[in-house]
Amino acid sequence: MSATHYRRAFGAILVREVLRFWQQRERFLSALVRPLLWLFIFAAGFRAALGVSIIPPYATYITYDVYMLPGLAAMIQLFNGMQNSLSMVYDREMGSMRVLLTTPLPRWYLLLSRLFAGVCVSLLQVYTFFAIAKLAGVDVPLAGWLLALPALIVTGMMLGALGMLFATTIRQLENFAGVMNFVIFPMFFVSSALYPLWKIREANIWLYWLCQFNPFTHAVELIRFALYRQFNGLAALIVLASLAGFGTVAVAAFDPSRGLAKRGEPAAD
């Protein structure tokens, strides 16, 4: 297979994801409404009560909405990663995954292309969110938007790979609601998205360590530092290691036959 074939196949997967996303514009709106509600209602309420003292990467005191912004960007990616995996389970059940997997290219490449295409869609959502926040006066340096792009790609891939890992273990579409309740919300709340780690440590040391073991915490911190033109090496290392781990297991475990069988009985004749 030539490099051109690889490139064209990725282009086809990306275009399909964008077209599907365009067909489901309500998905775009709902992906934005959620973080905007957090930003303009939750953060606005706490803004007066909770200022955040000077901690890296911030050079000065910041308001709570500014603190929350990276966490909400990561939240968009987390939801998008899970949405992408939901779409993979759906495609597997509906059969369109078979078209992808019978392509004469390595399966790991096809699955990672699918993952990366999903990340590209999430970037559209994140930057739209940044723009709305900027218009509303939540100040983040514009140069940081550009520097955050690599961080957002890596964090999006890591969260997407986690979603793909769940997609490999879920037999049927209806089982996916459990993932939403038992994965997304704990990951978001037990992290530095809402409160700085030093505050969590003061409140509860066990919760602090849980946050430290949560890769979502490090995704948030990687984005936060990048937005302020700084590099958080530890966060980058943990996010990359998590991406490698989740991605490897998910690709190895991906079994297209799962969608062909219903409740243990082979549907294939």
Partner: peptide, 20 residues
Amino acid sequence: TLDLDLTVRQNLMYFAGLRG
């Protein structure tokens, strides 16, 4: 295995891309 929300052309272009 066709994507119902895409057009015939979009479905076929997707496959053609996958085939390089």
